[in-house]
């Protein structure tokens, strides 16, 4: 359904005269195919290119090579208005729940934004849709009057998820959605996401560095190191029998109950 085909991205650091000082191969020849209702985990240490991959999948940055396909349609060359249907289908959830919400706006104003941007929804429906979205992320409706800074990190992350869901997407790109949260809250958010996945048939791309979270959360896992795919495997198989040396090292470094 949602496919990245051989995508690559190189960042150039340029000097005063436009000459290349250094090149970073952030993403090199990565492919993945996400099916309905499934979760693909992209894990790696910082600098592995996993967030760059997420931003390519969101079409926030253009890949240098390769294609992004949605329902078989190549959308990698689309821009502006032509991207609008794709934008509705694929939504991000960010790590920094505070930065992801405009601090000046109330929660209600924040949740109106996706409805305004969709353009096809009548203003009379806004109120009902917003309260329904608050219910779906288990937040009380009276939080609508509050501002992001009056909420906890976990509550803000729920608002981020509610905002994404108001676009009625089929795919969520979760960029380290729980890394900034307390461990006790992490499980709540992950369970919420799994419930929503089941109810709405959502597909997830989960970007993270926490292997135990990925093992619990993902169907397939792509292990990245310095922009390259080291291993792409079913989650259970990967953790029982890692093939690549890098994946072996990563899994060996996981804290385990002895």
């Amino acid at each position: 359904m949602f496919e990245l085909r051989n995508v690559s991205k190189t960042f150039h650091k340029r000097g005063v005269f436009g000459q290349t000082l250094s090149e970073t191969h952030a993403v090199q020849d990565i492919s993945l195919n996400l099916e309905k209702g499934k979760t693909i985990g992209v894990i790696g240490e910082s600098g592995s290119g996993k967030s760059t991959l997420a931003r390519i999948a969101l079409r926030m940055i253009d890949a240098d090579a390769g294609q992004v396909l949605f329902d078989g349609q190549d959308i990698s060359a689309l821009r502006g208005k032509a991207l609008k249907p794709f934008r509705q289908q694929v939504q991000p959830v960010f790590q920094d729940s505070a930065g992801a919400l405009d601090p000046r706006l109330t929660i209600e104003q924040t949740l109106i934004e996706p409805l305004v941007l969709r353009g096809s929804i009548d203003a009379s429906e806004f109120r009902d849709r917003i309260t329904a979205s608050m219910t779906s992320v288990d937040l009380p409706h009276d939080y609508l009057e509050r501002r992001p800074m009056e909420l906890s990190g976990g509550q803000r992350q729920r608002i981020g998820i509610a905002r994404a869901l108001l676009m009625e997407p089929r795919v969520l790109v979760l960029d380290e959605p729980v890394s900034a949260l307390d461990v006790s809250v992490q499980a709540q958010i992950l369970n919420l996401l799994l419930d929503l996945q089941e109810q709405k048939g959502l597909s997830f791309i989960f970007v993270g560095h926490d292997l135990s979270v990925a093992e619990f959360f993902c169907d397939d896992i792509l292990v990245m190191y310095l922009g390259e795919a080291k291993e792409f495997e079913d989650s259970r198989i990967l953790f029982q029998d890692p093939k690549s040396d890098y994946a072996k090292q990563l899994i060996a470094s996981m804290p385990r109950v002895l």
Partner: peptide, 17 residues
């Protein structure tokens, strides 16, 4: 540079929006 701008763009927000 804040993520909420990226979120807005990902929802189809134009630079003008």
């Amino acid at each position: 540079s804040f993520p909420f701008i990226e979120a807005s763009e990902a929802m189809g927000g134009t630079p003008w929006f």
